[in-house]
Write a protein that binds this DNA or RNA. Structure first.
Length: 105
DNA sequence: CCCCTGACGTAAC
DNA sequence: GGTTACGCCAGGG
């Protein structure tokens, strides 16, 4: 049988793996993760929502394009607090990507 | 099978 | 810089 990883690895697992590797104090965007995981940005959000808490992923380090918080107010506030706790700089409602972007050269 | 919704992104206004 | 529109793909009714 084709024990190919991809066959048994839904896009979600690839996304989780990538998110897991985001260093503390840094962030990545859905779009970027999607490019690395080879899937649409929406699927990244879908995968994260599906992950839940048991997966122990730094979900709060994933933000929308332009550093915007994509989650609704309640969860969005929690995400922001967590990020600030890690020293992630904010500029108004957005994360300062140039300062904390994971892939920032 | 059709339609709506969603943790997105980009372009246009 | 905020809002609208559309494309995108997966789930749920």
């Amino acid at each position: 049988m084709p024990s190919s990883d991809d066959a048994f690895r839904p896009t979600a697992e690839r996304v989780w793996e990538i998110v897991r590797q985001i260093p503390r104090g840094c962030v990545a965007t859905y779009g970027e993760i999607g490019e690395e995981a080879d899937c649409n940005a929406r699927q990244v959000g879908w995968a994260l929502r599906r992950a839940g808490a048991g997966r122990r992923l730094p979900w709060h380090r994933v933000v929308a394009a332009q550093g915007r918080i994509a989650l609704p107010e309640a969860a969005g506030l929690e995400q922001r607090l967590r990020l600030e706790q890690e020293g992630v700089p904010f500029r108004g409602r957005r994360v300062w990507l140039d300062q904390c972007r994971r892939d920032r050269a």
